[in-house]
């Protein structure tokens, strides 16, 4: 799994008060966290600050899973 996956898991678990064990690389981000598009934008800001990266929206457009998201972050670190 990508280097940032564990940090991503911890951040999402804490931010959305979910058990970290339910966050799987193949898990759907919206379904697992139960978030809407407003919260997704907020999560994007938090991730960018946490990892000190900028990820343009168009690079995230087709990303559905935590594994794909952590890989996208890794590419920008």
């Amino acid at each position: 799994m990508s280097a940032s996956f564990d940090r991503l898991t911890q951040l999402c678990a804490k931010r959305y008060s979910v058990d970290a064990s339910i966050i799987k690389p193949e898990g759907d981000i919206f379904e697992t966290l139960g978030i809407d598009s407003f919260q997704a934008a907020e999560l994007m800001s938090e991730l960018e600050m946490e990892f000190d990266v900028e990820i343009p929206d168009y690079e995230l457009q087709d990303i559905k899973t935590f594994g794909a998201l952590s890989s996208a972050i890794d590419e920008r670190i």
């Binding site: 994007m44 800001s45 960018e48 600050m49 900028e54 168009y58």
Partner: peptide
């Protein structure tokens, strides 16, 4: 030209 969003820091 990209429609992208930026965060508060940027």
């Amino acid at each position: 030209l990209t429609g992208r969003s930026i965060n508060a820091k940027k």
